[in-house]
Amino acid sequence: MSDSNTTDFTNPSTFILLGIPGLEAAHIWISIPFCAMYTIAVFGNFTILYIVKREPSLHGPMFYFLCMLAITDLVMSTSTLPKLLSIFWFNSREISFSSCLTQMYFVHSFSGMESGILVAMAFDRYVAICNPLRYSTILTNSIVAKIGLAVVLRSGILILLYPLLARQWPYCRTNIIPHFYCGHIVVVKLACADTRISSYYGLFNLLSEIGMDVFFISVSYTLILRAIFRLPTKDAQLKTFGTCISHLCAIFALYIPDFFSSFTQRFGQNVPVHFLVLFASVYLLVPPVLHPIIYGVSTKQIRDRLLQLFTHKKT
């Protein structure tokens, strides 16, 4: 490693991303599933957006929220995966300081937006099941747009402190980041100052934003399950609960890796670095891959339009 990477500096012009430390020899092989998953994520989410745009019968609150989810998935995966593949394929490890902070902002803000959209989708399911006669009057296009704007503003403002604080710290240890993207805690750990305010704010944001979202989702599904169990027949209960399966799968696909990755980054000092990095990749890439598959398979309207799309192409 060159001396320029370890000498003292206050404002580094570039950071060096290592990719997956300890697995450098396998980077080319690891790139194959990563590239395949990114391709699936891009194709799947663009397909969802195309189908909803083309089919007027899908122009409703549930599918508008699904489009918002697809957009956040595209931005989240595109913020990190192209750079990761360039590290694997071309050994292009450098990233400018400003680009690093920009990437940090996009990854964390859109992750928060994705969580907020899942709350909105839980509210959609609650209204559809518990107040079906008022569904169209409660979730109007205006209300859906306001919910979407609130989700964007909440995460966009809360995460703004991440790069602003990170820019203030002096980086006099090293500019080498043992990761494939500029995560908040990973970058802050490189600073040679008391960065507890950044660490505490990150933990506060995780527990308040994501924790609050999980709380509201839990309340929604408690009310939903209570309404389902009041239905007269078993078939009606199963059919109604089936409309929530795709959303529940999307929730688990996002929150389980998110919480595990966030807490291990802060408190997992004894966890191997390559394991932390690989799990972070699961959190960033698996939800964008799974969401279009989950909704494409389990949502009848999308499944039917998808089959029609491919049938017309063959004919």
Rank of each mutant, 00 (worst) to 15 (best):
I16C: 01
I16E: 03
L18Y: 07
E24T: 13
S31C: 10
I32A: 10
P33A: 12
G44M: 07
L49R: 03
L49E: 09
R54T: 13
R54Q: 15
P56R: 05
F65A: 07
A70E: 03
I71G: 02
K83I: 03
L85C: 09
N91M: 08
I95L: 14
I95N: 10
S99A: 15
C100K: 11
Y105H: 05
H108D: 07
F110I: 05
I117F: 02
M121D: 03
A122T: 13
F123S: 11
R125K: 15
Y126K: 06
C130I: 04
R134T: 04
T137N: 05
I138F: 05
A150W: 10
V151H: 02
R154Y: 02
P163E: 10
L164Y: 11
L164R: 02
L165S: 10
C172H: 09
N175G: 13
F180S: 11
H184G: 05
V186F: 13
A191N: 02
C192E: 06
G202A: 07
M212C: 10
D213L: 00
F215K: 02
I217T: 03
S218F: 06
S218H: 03
Y221G: 03
T222V: 09
I224P: 09
R230P: 02
T233M: 14
D235I: 08
Q237D: 10
T240C: 09
G242V: 03
T243A: 07
S246N: 12
C249A: 14
C249L: 15
C249F: 15
A250W: 06
Y255W: 02
T264R: 00
R266Q: 13
G268S: 04
Q269K: 14
P272L: 07
F275M: 12
L276C: 02
L278M: 15
S281H: 05
H291D: 02
H291P: 00
I294Q: 00
G296D: 01
S298M: 07
